[in-house]
Computed example of a mutant assay.
Amino acid sequence: MKKFVLTGLLLSGIVFSGMAQSRGASDPKAKTILDGVSSKFKSLKTVVANFVLKVEGANNSVNDSKKGTVYLKGAKYKVTLPGQEIISDNKTSWTYAKDVNEVTINNVDQSSGAMTPAKLFTNFYDKDYLYRLDGESNEKGKVLQNIEMTPTDKSKNIFKVMVSVDKKNQNIARMKVFEKNGNHYTYEITSFTPNAATVTDAIFTFDAKKYPGVEVVDLR
């Protein structure tokens, strides 16, 4: 299993070519819940969230799980997974692979529809998905509001996304992506720390001095 596949869910791997046009209508109850998540996230200065990323291949061909952490401040983010870091200050992005001690640098395309960790907590859903409330469930002492989302662009490999929102805290607790090829990706938040004082701007840049001998691939 390539490490970049494990990053796919966090960055969603959902890249849209142009703005999708809405077809049909979304459930207003689901919109109220998602708007609450977005509003709360926008009110926070910083966020640190630990997560578990699970990959399930079609016919049990792949079954993998990794723990990671995401740091967020506005549109800036840093994702750490075993052997990999992805960093963005919203102008430049750095992807570091530990096994080859290599960092790839790119400009951030502001016009791109690619999903980022920050967008997962904001109103990404309005332009590219139809959504409906799929009831509530009780898990680990929490009431989760489950929302089924379907892309408006049916040509994409993603055909469904299930988002579970912690009803009490208005945080995303879990997101599961279903692909047409049978692969499933589950992104589960295990802890969510708002306004963490340890999150500074320095986190959102790559300091090559801390990685002796790192090979730099600058694609800007």
Rank of each mutant, 00 (worst) to 15 (best):
S12G: 13
A75V: 02
V79E: 03
D89E: 01
E215T: 15
G141S: 02
P194K: 07
V161G: 03
D134F: 07
E56K: 12
D134L: 05
D35H: 13
E188I: 10
S137A: 14
S39L: 11
F51E: 07
Y187N: 15
L144F: 14
V143E: 10
N138H: 03
V199M: 04
D128W: 01
V143H: 09
P82D: 11
P28T: 01
V48G: 03
K127T: 07
A118L: 00
T200R: 05
V52W: 09
T92Q: 14
A114T: 04
T95S: 11
F124I: 06
D201V: 05
L10P: 00
K45V: 05
V70Q: 04
Q84T: 10
T32A: 13
N169M: 13
I172L: 15
K54M: 14
L72G: 03
K98E: 15
D64A: 13
N171A: 09
K78D: 01
L44V: 02
D201C: 04
N90W: 01
D109W: 11
G68R: 08
V52F: 05
G18P: 06
F41T: 07
S22T: 15
K127D: 12
T122R: 05
G182S: 13
D153M: 08
Q21P: 00
D89N: 14
V103H: 02
I86K: 00
G57Y: 03
F121D: 00
D153E: 11
E215D: 10
N183H: 06
F159V: 11
K73G: 04
T80R: 03
K76I: 00
T193M: 08
V108C: 07
D153L: 08
N157Q: 13
Y96S: 04
T200N: 14
D126V: 11
N195G: 05
F192W: 15
K154V: 09
